[in-house]
Every structure is written in C-alpha cells, then in structure tokens.
C-alpha cells in the first residue's frame, strides 16, 4: 500500500497523464505497481493475454516481431514511453513480444483492475481511451514512416 501511494506523483508527472483529474489519478494509482526486468528478460510474448501495460522509467525495451529468420526489433522504448495498448482493445491479446534490452524499471498498471474502473466510471474510461488513442496515433505514424523505407534507394 505504501509503495502504491508513492507512485501517484510519478504518474502525475508522466506526459501522458499530465493534467489528469486528481480522482482519476487515484483510480490509476490503485492499479499500479513497480516492476523491474533484468537484461534480456521478456516482459511478455506474442499471444499472451494483455493484462497490464507499462510506463517505462529506466532502461530500454525492444518490441520484437517473430520472423522465420529470428526476431526482428521493430521499435525500442525508453524512459517516459508507454508500452502496451492491447489491454484497451478486445480480445486483449499481445501481438508482439517485448524484451528488456538492459535492466529496466517500470510502473506496471493492472489492466483488469483498470478496465473494471473504466466500466464503473465511463467518463474515466473515455479519458483513458482518449489518452491512449493519442499515443497509438503517434506510434502508428512512426510505424508508417518506418515502413516507407525512406532511407532505401529511390523507387525507379
């Protein structure tokens, strides 16, 4: 409980939650916990149930897609980044694996707990969706940019 309380100021200062109403921060904090992952530990694998998301505080996490030649790193995330959107969208399954490239510390938010609070308070639920949609939009733009292979040779 003491540990959970101490997470509130961290959540409050996170760019995604900056300006969030105090009561909403309380709801979020109730579902949050500190976690750490050693180098090369997997946070989750593709196909896992999306029962949490992470706010990375220190370290680096690689988002990996499985390929027949081995895993391909499609993105890395670092301090201040949000990891995991699958908790928002049914059927709540992970599409990618994520691995700690180095010792990583994060705040984990229990998605089951948060979804219950979203359902109980639709205004809070809408706020969460709004905040995550913004993050999803930015990441999608970046993914399209990466897919465009702009540094490759020009099309003939």
């Amino acid at each position: 409980m003491t540990e959970t309380k101490s997470l509130r100021p961290i959540l409050e200062e996170h760019p995604l939650f900056r300006g969030l109403k105090s009561e909403y921060l309380d709801l979020l904090t109730d579902c949050a916990a500190n976690v750490r992952f050693d180098q090369d530990a997997y946070l989750f694998h593709a196909g896992d149930e999306a029962n949490d998301f992470f706010l990375i505080r220190h370290g680096m996490v690689a988002v990996e897609a499985e390929d027949i030649k081995g895993p391909i790193v499609v993105e890395t995330l670092g301090p201040g980044d949000i990891l995991g959107w699958s908790w928002v969208i049914p059927p709540y399954n992970r599409k990618f694996a994520t691995r700690a490239v180095q010792l990583t510390r994060a705040i984990s938010v229990d998605a089951l707990c948060l979804r219950q609070k979203c359902e109980a308070d639709p205004k809070f639920g809408y706020k969460m969706i709004e905040l995550f949609s913004k993050n999803i939009k930015e990441r999608l733009y970046n993914a399209w940019w990466q897919m465009a292979d702009i540094y490759g040779p020009p099309a003939r």
Binding site: A62, G70, P71, I72, V73, V74, Q146, Y151
Partner: peptide
Amino acid sequence: VTVDHADRNWRSNVGVVTRLIPM
C-alpha cells in the same frame, strides 16, 4: 543513433529519428 529495424544483436535505438530529439 537509431535504425528502422534490426535483429536482436543491436542494442541501441530502433524507431524514427524524431524519437531521438528528447534524448
């Protein structure tokens, strides 16, 4: 530095170059 994609031996950034600006 960052790259658009890499195998898992690469231990630095993967992603678009604008993500380096805050660093």
